[in-house]
Write a protein that binds this DNA or RNA. Structure first.
Lengths: 201, 201
DNA sequence: TGTACATCAGTGAACGCGCGTTCACTGATGTAC
DNA sequence: TGTACATCAGTGAACGCGCGTTCACTGATGTAC
């Protein structure tokens, strides 16, 4: 078939991108390699030129998803600071919005994979844990605004803020099509309570 | 083979119980009916005498899990009140304990299924949503202790408390074997921050 | 109460299907001279 | 720079396997008289 080395690298990335989308939407177990490679524009046979196994792909997907997620968080914080806006309040506003709730495909991977990662490959679990650690560092750092809290207090607050964002989003997503009104209430009041809590910080 | 009607009902419950355990641990997609019925002590053929499909079983499992979860919450609140202890603080202490974190099999189903339910049967999603609604009612009611908050404020607080419990537990569970120290920190500090928050309430 | 028959929970083999993975093959890309 | 050959990404059929579901059959339970 003949494909340049550069093209092969891009094709590998296409497989990862297609897999990330499908894994986020339907879960790893529900997506077969035939469907997945077809979504990336290939046939299933060539998959093993790029990955040793499906588990290896799962690990690569989680690596990429968590890296992108952390990069986006860093960029959002920098942008808020440049605009003179409180980066954490702005983050909460976005995180607990219905836009983010419906954006399974490219929303924060910490929430999207939170329930699944426990059952995924060891490599995927490691990537996820490292991503969460980075997220906490970023949030703790971003809490170092005009307030006087020390480093240890900021870290505790970061844990609390991330947990609340993840919990509210996961819960709201879990209910959004069986009880959309309650899902909206959870999202809205969870956001307000968290912002109220941050206002007093 | 010949089994009494009473026995048949008990056998159906055995299948549901075995399925709940396996679904909690490994996810619905990863558990086959052959394995599942074998775990309940039967062969796979008889499964369809009890359930129309695997999806119908998933719905029955979620019904039972959420009903039991709500009943346990109600019982815990009553017990705390009888003992003169703050029911919510006690609930948080248990919910965000390492015992509960490691108890996937019979821990709170709201957390255990939070990430999965979105992809399960419509019936399961409905049961889940109703269970969450009941949990919120119970928590809001239990917040009506010695304080003066009105009903609407208590409901907002209930949403915030449940979200934080779910988020902290789900996040800690997601990391517990890739980074147990950070998982412990999340669980501990998440609990302390939530208790601190409740103390001022 | 005893006998004859219908019911239906449970068995275990079988169905078609898609899974993850392997393999012989193709042919443009990349390399050696 | 041009030619001969090796590399290896991608193809598509095939592997064994377990999936959800169906089915003919068994035989104790439950019912009718």
């Amino acid at each position: 078939v003949g494909v340049s080395r550069q093209q092969a690298i891009e094709n590998r990335q296409s497989i990862i991108a297609a897999a990330e989308k499908l894994f986020r939407e339907r879960g790893v177990d529900a997506v077969g390699l035939t469907e997945l490679t077809k979504a990336a524009g290939f046939t299933q046979g060539g998959f093993y030129n790029h990955f040793e196994s499906k588990d290896a792909l799962v690990t690569a997907v989680m690596d990429k998803a968590m890296e992108n997620g952390t990069n986006r968080l860093v960029a959002a914080i920098e942008q808020s600071r440049a605009a003179g806006v409180d980066p954490i309040k702005r983050r909460v506003d976005w995180y607990l919005s219905s836009d983010h709730r419906s954006n399974i495909n490219s929303g924060c991977p910490v929430s999207t994979f939170a329930g699944d990662v426990r059952r995924l490959s060891a490599g995927a679990r490691k990537s996820y844990a490292e991503g969460v650690a980075s997220n906490l560092d970023c949030i703790a750092d971003a809490l170092n605004g005009t307030n006087k809290a020390n480093k240890r207090e900021r870290r505790k607050k970061a844990i609390s803020v991330l947990s609340q964002m993840v919990g509210t989003l996961v819960l709201s997503r879990a209910m959004v099509d069986a009880d959309p009104d309650l899902a909206d209430e959870i999202l809205r009041d969870g956001r307000r309570q968290l912002l109220l809590d941050l206002a007093g910080y």
